[in-house]
């Protein structure tokens, strides 16, 4: 009887020890493997992972509310519907406030036009021209970084991988961007936007990660003005869905024929 009990206790002890000894060692190994994988990824691959979090695919649609704040006080907001095609084409329709209703902003590659209903042809504009608050046209119309910027890893800490994004061409909105990427999950957490003369212009914080189209994605981006402290703008994303918008919508001549 004693022998039998001893055997059972021994078996239980053995199994328990196996369980408690192997699981942590496996987890540690997984972490090590993941860590090695992270350390093996180059800057371009990391940026692609970041872009895949921000954009669910190449063709999709989402709604955006842009709310500027000054010293904590909310200013009038704008509501927009954004259609994206092949990453580098975006069509932004202004839906609110009524004064701007019906305006269209088209970005095709690095070209940008605005169309005001009732007027002539779309007018070519520069990416720097501001939409509202701290948000420029390019911030809304361009949803991925890898089209316009070349990435380089400048630092790996326990928490972040710090990427330096340098403009590929002269006609992009920012000279360079420093992007703080979460080391565990590649979430973009913070971005510093610089002018071509290395002047810090804005800081963006990516927040409110929610599961959208099968992945956790930031649903709120806070853009702080570094030239005027205390002023910031909140961009709230919603209604993201995969949708293939016809290619003709992204032709500048088509804007006046667009059916809402």
């Amino acid at each position: 009887m004693i022998k039998k009990n001893l055997l059972v206790v021994s078996v239980v002890f053995f199994l328990t020890s196996v369980v408690f000894s192997t699981t942590p060692s496996e987890n540690l190994q997984t972490l090590k493997r993941k860590s090695n994988a992270v350390s093996k990824l180059n800057a371009k691959e990391i940026l692609e992972k970041v872009d895949n979090i921000r954009a669910p695919g190449t063709n999709f649609v989402f709604k955006l509310e842009v709310v500027p704040y000054k010293n904590g006080k909310k200013a009038p907001a704008q509501k927009l519907t954004v259609r994206v095609k092949d990453h580098d084409k975006s069509l932004v329709e202004f839906t609110y406030p009524p004064a701007n209703k019906g305006r269209l902003l088209l970005m095709n590659s690095n070209n940008m036009w605005i169309y005001i209903p009732g007027t002539r042809q779309p007018i070519r504009i520069s990416p720097q021209q501001r939409l509202l608050g701290q948000v420029a046209n390019g911030d809304v119309a361009r949803v991925v970084y890898s089209i316009d910027y070349q990435a380089k890893i400048i630092n790996r800490s326990k928490k972040y991988i710090k990427l330096l994004l340098k403009a590929k061409k002269g006609n992009v909105q920012y000279g360079q961007i420093v992007l703080f990427v979460n080391r565990k999950n590649f979430y973009p957490e913070k971005a510093l936007f610089y002018t071509k003369s290395d002047r810090l212009l804005k800081t963006a914080y990516y927040k409110d990660y929610q599961e959208v189209l099968g992945k956790l994605r930031p649903q709120l981006v806070e853009i702080h003005d570094e030239l005027r402290k205390g002023q910031y703008t909140v961009m709230k994303y919603s209604g993201m869905e995969m949708k293939n918008t016809p290619g003709s919508y992204f032709q500048k001549s088509y804007l006046k024929h667009l059916i809402r």
């Binding site: 070519r124 504009i125 520069s126 990416p127 720097q128 390019g138 002269g170 006609n171």
Partner: peptide, 11 residues
């Protein structure tokens, strides 16, 4: 019309 850099437009 064209744009030069991120801030300048010419026509």
């Amino acid at each position: 019309s064209s744009t030069i850099g991120d801030s300048l437009g010419i026509h």
